[in-house]
């Protein structure tokens, strides 16, 4: 590694890399409970990355962001997801529309595209975290890819939440986080959205006896 990069930046880059790896892991993971575990681990890495940035720069609102991340993404949301998985009694493995190796290959292409796109932007930034912008964008895209390829509604929600992780990482890396009000707002949105989607899951299962989104094709307006 280049000696000019300070330790904190190296740490943040490390955590970001782990987040990206976890995103790939989520893309490949078939079991629902493991998927939730991976999501929690991703949240934890995000928490560590934000905390490092906060300690290095000494900006107080980054501490709050880190705390919020810990509370929401490491504890609250995984817990809700666990409960949902247990209550809905999802045993079967996650079925993907495209097989896993192909998905991974597409994912790699996306990561390259993301780095390519993010390079000029991160050159404009002067934060110690700027190197992670490409990773953040890659995480968003991988999460999107996961939403596209999965068939169970619950794994799409996990993809959605993971996408929010990527956005959060992007915000932290580019500008040391969004204003506190925006961050709180987004956090609340995610939480409320999760609760509403939880209710929907039960409704969807009652209606179709399954959480498979293919059943929803019938809802199309002809």
């Amino acid at each position: 590694m280049n000696a000019a990069i300070p330790l904190s930046a190296q740490l943040i880059n490390l955590f970001a890399a782990v987040i990206l790896l976890l995103a790939f892991a989520m893309l490949a993971q078939r079991r629902m409970l493991s998927l939730v575990n991976l999501f929690a681990a991703q949240g934890f890495c995000l928490f560590l990355a934000t905390l490092t940035a906060a300690v290095t720069t000494g900006q107080s609102h980054l501490f709050y962001s880190a705390g919020l991340t810990l509370l929401l993404k490491v504890i609250a949301l995984p817990w809700i997801l666990y409960r949902l998985v247990r209550q809905l009694n999802i045993k079967g493995e996650v079925e993907a529309l495209i097989n896993i190796p192909t998905t991974m290959l597409v994912g790699i292409v996306l990561v390259m595209a993301a780095f390519n796109v993010a390079l000029p932007i991160s050159e404009l930034s002067h934060t110690i975290t700027r190197g992670t912008l490409g990773i953040a964008l890659a995480v968003v895209m991988l999460a999107f890819l996961m939403m596209i390829t999965r068939q169970k509604a619950i794994s799409q929600v996990v993809g959605f939440l993971s996408m929010e992780n990527g956005l959060f990482l992007a915000a932290t890396s580019a500008t040391y986080g969004m204003p506190m009000v925006v961050e709180l707002g987004i956090a609340l949105d995610v939480l409320v959205g999760m609760i509403i989607l939880g209710v929907f899951f039960f409704q969807i299962r009652d209606q179709f006896d399954s959480l498979d989104i293919r059943h929803m094709e019938k809802l199309k307006d002809n």
Binding site: M147, L219, K220
Partner: peptide, 14 residues
Amino acid sequence: LQGGRIAVYLMYSF
């Protein structure tokens, strides 16, 4: 364009 498949809709956005 409106096939009714959520995956396809997501693909459009993507």
